[in-house]
Write a protein that binds this DNA or RNA. Structure first.
Length: 275
DNA sequence: GTTAATACCTGTTCGC
DNA sequence: TGCGAACAGGTATTAA
């Protein structure tokens, strides 16, 4: 379930092998992921040098030497597999294969095909249909308590739904939404517009903390961000409330973690210490 | 304009 | 043991 920390870790792993190198060979093994590949996708990528790989929200942005960028989203089951040389046997759902001039092979594998890839002019990235309107990066200076409070002002939905909204803050998914609210001591059911002042400050801080810790865990638990099987970016998590239904609250409150459904998706929280 | 529900997709888990 | 239902979830689209 790639959220911001996983995408960040994948992007760093990709940077290591792609930056400065040409894409000698490009192959798509089907015509679409979530959407069709753009026209001339393979031809436009082949021979390009990758200048920089970075992340925007949950998107991976690989800037190319022709002024365009490869924009990629992992959806919920997307994986990047890196190997030296092309594997003799491809795995099911290996949809895109990139080979660098150094012989490193990157496979984009996505069973559920909620992922996507597109090509966009670097200068127009922020105007791209999928990027336009996305809120501030939570780890940057442009995200803070007052800015979060302003984004939540007047919002009548729950705070959980609000921080999942990419327009409010970029990159927070279902798992870290629960984790951040737990850290901040805020009930996921609280109405978004009531999270102001000190509460907003606490929540902004909690969002930064859970994301930063997850990124650090990814960096420290993986050598060069690549696992033994070549997969980039995934690592052992230590969640405090997510998927912990029925377990005692990790704090000292003596409460029990509950699971509720909000907007059709699971939320985990401690009803005793989250208000 | 805002919010909620639904569709997309398929591997895995759970209950009967 | 086998089968079907439920579930996972990011984002666009449709409905309310």
């Amino acid at each position: 379930m790639p959220e911001l920390p996983e995408v960040e870790t994948v992007a760093r792993g990709l940077a290591k092998r792609l930056e400065g190198h040409r894409l000698a060979k490009v192959e798509t093994r089907r015509g679409d992921l979530r959407w069709p590949f753009p026209k001339g996708f393979v031809k436009r990528l082949t021979g390009r040098r990758v200048l920089k790989v970075r992340r925007r929200a949950k998107y991976i942005v690989a800037e190319l030497d022709d002024g365009n960028a490869l924009l990629a989203h992992l959806g919920m089951s997307g994986r990047m597999l890196l190997s030296k040389g092309r594997p003799e046997i491809l795995e099911p759902h290996d949809h895109v294969i990139l080979e660098t001039d150094e012989g490193w092979v990157l496979r984009f594998n996505d069973a559920r095909r909620f992922g996507m890839m597109d090509l966009v002019a670097i200068a127009k990235l922020e105007q791209h249909k999928l990027i336009r309107g996305i809120g501030p990066e939570p780890l940057g200076n442009e995200f803070s308590g007052p800015i979060l409070a302003a984004a939540l002002k007047g919002k009548k939905t729950s705070i959980k739904a609000a921080i999942l909204d990419q327009k409010v803050v970029a990159g927070v998914g279902n798992i870290y939404a629960s984790e951040a609210l737990y850290r901040a001591g805020i009930s996921p059911k609280r109405l978004a517009y009531t999270v102001q002042g000190d509460r907003a400050e606490k929540l902004a801080h909690a969002i930064k903390a859970v994301l930063n810790e997850a990124i650090a865990a990814g960096g420290s638990s993986l050598r060069d961000y690549v696992q033994a099987d070549g997969e980039l970016g995934y690592f052992q998590h230590h969640w405090r409330v997510y998927d912990k239904e029925g377990q005692p609250c990790p704090g000292k409150c003596g409460g029990t973690i509950r699971r509720i459904t909000q907007g059709g998706r699971s939320t985990f929280y401690c009803p005793k210490c989250q208000r």
